[in-house]
Simulated assay, not measured.
Amino acid sequence: MTTKLSGYYQQAYASHSKHFNQCFYCGCEATERDYCPPLHMMQSIIDLGEDAEFISIPACYECFALLHNERVLTIDGRFTKVKKKIANKYAKALRVFHMWHENELDDMSDEFVHSIKAGMKLGEEAAQRLDFQGYSYATEDARVTIREKRTEFDVQGIVFYDFKEALNYCINELSVDKSDFYKLVVEDYNGDFNRALSQYRHRHEKVTAATDANTLIKSFAKQHKQNSDFVTRTVTHFINKDPSLTTEGALEKLYTNYIKK
């Protein structure tokens, strides 16, 4: 039955010999053919009159398995879907690869170094698969040209072609905390460094402001021999009633209304 169904699909093959037997999605060795849409969904898609490309394309076993149950009806859509799945599956290894450097392992235990190096190797392989841009292919009816493009990461107008280099620039030159910032740029902003930097600074400024306010309150309480909890509650009350008030303004109001008298 599967053989009969596969006859409805156009076979896609790499246009250039350097891509023969290479997975279209990640560049690894192709051992399977990914059917777009999956063979076991074909009949229902036809019955529902859904638009689909009905193309089979070379894929490695892992990409084939990751896409097997995905109701994604175009090659481009399946390309995007499998990249997300690879990124999620190897998220921990990618984090290790991007966050660690060989020169940081010198003083670590052998067991720890072995574990980190294994993670770095797996993460590097995953990063290479994510960077792979596909290749031009031909079917019986058409030739699809894939223009190879390098992934760009803009950091305040400076363009990097490698995620790790962009991350290191932010850590070393912009003094971000690598753990907090990595979570922002990867999990929250999908590689958009500028949006991640904006949010990081916003959070940092809020923390700094809260720390400064706490310092002012403690200093005020000590100077005027007041209970610091009372000062904190009163300042919070004043600011809630009038959001335009600064901590300094609220303390001044507290002094005028309750202490100076």
Rank of each mutant, 00 (worst) to 15 (best):
F112P: 08
D76Y: 00
Q11E: 15
V113L: 00
K164T: 13
E102R: 08
H98T: 15
S179Q: 14
A87N: 09
I75M: 01
G119L: 03
Q128W: 03
M99A: 05
K218T: 13
A166R: 12
G77E: 03
F230W: 08
E62A: 01
T80P: 03
M41L: 09
Q43K: 10
G134D: 06
A118N: 12
M1V: 13
A52Y: 03
F230D: 12
L174V: 12
A127E: 15
T80C: 02
V235K: 00
D106N: 10
T74D: 00
L48T: 12
C23F: 02
Y9M: 05
S56H: 10
P243E: 04
A126F: 01
I45E: 05
I46W: 01
V113N: 07
F132T: 08
Q128Y: 07
V72Q: 04
L73T: 10
V96W: 00
Q199S: 12
I86G: 00
P58W: 06
T31E: 06
E50N: 10
K261N: 13
L167R: 09
A59P: 03
L254W: 07
N69Y: 07
S56D: 11
Y137A: 03
T80Y: 09
T31N: 05
A126R: 04
N227Y: 06
I86F: 02
A142N: 14
W100Y: 08
A93C: 09
T74R: 02
T232A: 05
N190W: 11
G49C: 04
D180R: 15
I217Y: 00
N172C: 03
S228N: 13
K253M: 10
A166K: 10
T31G: 07
I55Y: 02
N190I: 11
D162E: 12
Y13L: 08
K253P: 11
N194E: 14
T215H: 05
D180N: 14
K222I: 15
A91I: 15
A250E: 02
L73G: 05
D154M: 05
P243T: 13
Y9V: 09
E125S: 11
K164M: 04
F238V: 10
V186A: 01
A213E: 13
D131H: 06
R195N: 14
P243W: 02
I158D: 09
I57R: 00
N214C: 07
Q199Y: 13
W100F: 04
R150N: 08
E140Q: 09
V159M: 11
F112L: 01
E152L: 07
M41F: 06
F220S: 11
V207G: 02
E29C: 08
Q226R: 13
S56E: 07
A127T: 14
E32L: 02
L167W: 04
L174C: 05
S244A: 11
E252S: 13
L216I: 06
F238E: 10
S219C: 04
